[in-house]
Design a binder for these strands. Structure first.
Lengths: 319, 319
DNA sequence: CATCTTATGCTCACGGAGAGTATAAATGGC
DNA sequence: GCCATTTATACTCTCCGTGAGCATAAGATG
């Protein structure tokens, strides 16, 4: 640490200028479908430049999201910062830094008349929805292609290691599936050249996996967001940001299941929600429903003060 | 999302140029003391510019850290990206973006003769070391000052809420202390103006809390790093990056305790480590030791392949 | 009224985690 | 050589969280 500029003040804005963009993964859940805001016909995540007028990164994000959708974001959280070599491939063009954020809203809070629209997130990651069991494309398409990729490794040992990695990451061969490994699965598919974005403009479109592609690394950012959210709902009461003011416990459960991509044991779910006092009854009952009517609940905002910091748990069963 | 430049290609490097710096929290543990690399007499974290020659952020970080310390980093992980308004306070000066990383090494792998040196991380956060019980400064200094701050709130309700937040965050009044809330505690102290960095050059140095300050927001970045590491050691085998090639189980335990800032139940610790097959015996025994000699172990690097993805657990007892 | 669907209450069994007891193996002092 | 001290290591016990299933209630529909 001898020579280089260690203190910020010693090298102000010299040769290391870059451009900074904010990229947003804006999530909502509408009757059992997790959705994200997309632009350009669903091929990109909304993004905007980080400009001088913004006081902080989060301020910047909130500002342009609210300006463009007409409604405020609830929970906002930074995801990850990516750096790309100059876009045109020109070595002299500046670096670009993309700072990605996860934001939670509700679909009905976003205005009409914008280029943006909602897309189901499983359109981009069909292999991530295990609510009706492992998706058929997993066994039919993905697993065989991964197996072929594993077999293509130079040595038998490496072949075994590759396949083991695939099996663990995707929950193949009777292993249990871990819903949080969204990013690892995406990167594994990328490594196996099964993601169209990875094929560096060579025309081998045939050997890819189902799922809508996106511009640049936007699908990777989305994977990061899904993974983060799936992890977070287990210990923080963030699902409620995605719920309407009043809801039944089943609706809440369906939202959690939609995000997690897997089913939950109903009675245990209710037990956990209630014993943690996350919700309170409104007194009203749900209307327009088949079966026995359910009580309506609302989120107890008080818990944010009581336990802003402590934990919350959601049960995600394994079967 | 109508008018503003959503697609990256539509506004290349227009008015949103910023400077990007990488800031590193480089951690080692030497006989029971967690240490970090600091510069400028311990008042700053090492940082370097993100330049054109670097292929990625992590590459850039590894490059200059290895160049400056003479040894490779093991585990590296991105922490958080901060944005500061132009340093000089001049509104026209460019934004600066600081991308912070957590890196794990060992003290003996870092060369001599650099400006950098090692500082104990509890020098900066004395209230974070609960290994010998809650530090005395907590009850004697911090709690009273926080109580005073809570009392200063405008309404009784707000006063109660503030104090409740303090009590939860710091584990006061017989609550149990959560070692992961490093950042929350720091920010609470900041909010209560008990952190010198927060006093905007007004001379109220008297009412601050013990602990060495740092330049700019470097102490906040360090807090982020400590928090991340404390969370991570519980489910990923990252401690081993900080251990020598061979070690006893007690040494391993001491390292975990040093990082976590709290003690661990010895027998349960060993049970967990062994049943997870994280280590294997070397066959040799520890020398130069009081008491019954202990077996030496080494990390089973194979688990990284087996469970790169799955979990690992460390017991952190509550008493 | 039978049936279907959803809501809601209760019980049970397993396993993991926290904590304690007991014994073994070394050292150093007398 | 004996004893106190220190650390290592093996077991045991209990509690509780969690997954899972059973049973019943309360509506709608034909």
């Amino acid at each position: 640490m001898a020579k280089s500029p260690q203190k910020k003040s010693s090298a102000p804005a010299s040769g290391n200028a870059v451009t900074a963009d904010l990229v947003a993964v804006l999530v909502a859940v509408t009757d059992g479908t997790p959705k994200i805001v997309t632009i350009a016909g669903g091929s990109a995540l909304p993004s905007g430049p980080f400009e001088f007028t913004h006081r902080s990164l989060q301020t910047a994000l909130r500002a342009w999201v609210e300006a463009q959708t007409g409604h405020p974001l609830g929970y906002v959280e930074q995801l990850y910062t990516f750096a790309d070599r100059g876009r045109s491939g020109d070595a002299k063009s500046p670096h670009s830094v993309s700072i990605s954020y996860l934001g939670l809203t509700r679909e009905d809070r976003v205005g009409e008349g914008f280029e943006a629209h909602w897309s189901g997130w499983y359109d981009y990651f069909p292999w991530e929805d295990h609510r009706a069991g492992a998706p058929s494309s997993l066994a039919k398409i993905i697993a065989p292609k991964l197996k072929a990729w594993a077999k293509a490794a130079p040595s038998p040992t490496l072949q075994r290691e590759r396949w083991q990695r695939c099996a663990i990451t995707f929950g193949l061969e009777d292993r249990d599936w871990n819903e949080e490994l969204v990013l690892q699965r995406y990167e594994l598919l990328w490594e196996a050249s099964l993601i169209p974005e990875a094929n560096h403009s060579r025309g081998r479109e045939a050997s890819v996996v189902p799922g809508k592609p996106m511009t640049a690394d936007h699908r990777r950012i989305l994977a990061t967001g899904i993974a983060r959210l799936r992890a977070k709902i287990k210990y923080r009461p963030v699902v409620f940001e995605l719920m309407p003011a009043e809801f039944t416990l089943l609706q809440l459960q369906r939202s959690v299941e939609a995000l997690a991509g897997r089913l939950v044991h109903k009675q245990n779910f209710r037990r956990l929600i209630e014993q943690q006092e996350l919700v309170e009854e409104t007194g009203a009952m749900a209307a327009d429903t088949v079966g026995r009517p359910a009580k309506l609940f609302r989120f107890r905002h008080a818990v944010l003060a009581e336990r802003a910091v402590a934990g919350t748990k959601l049960p995600l069963s394994r079967t």
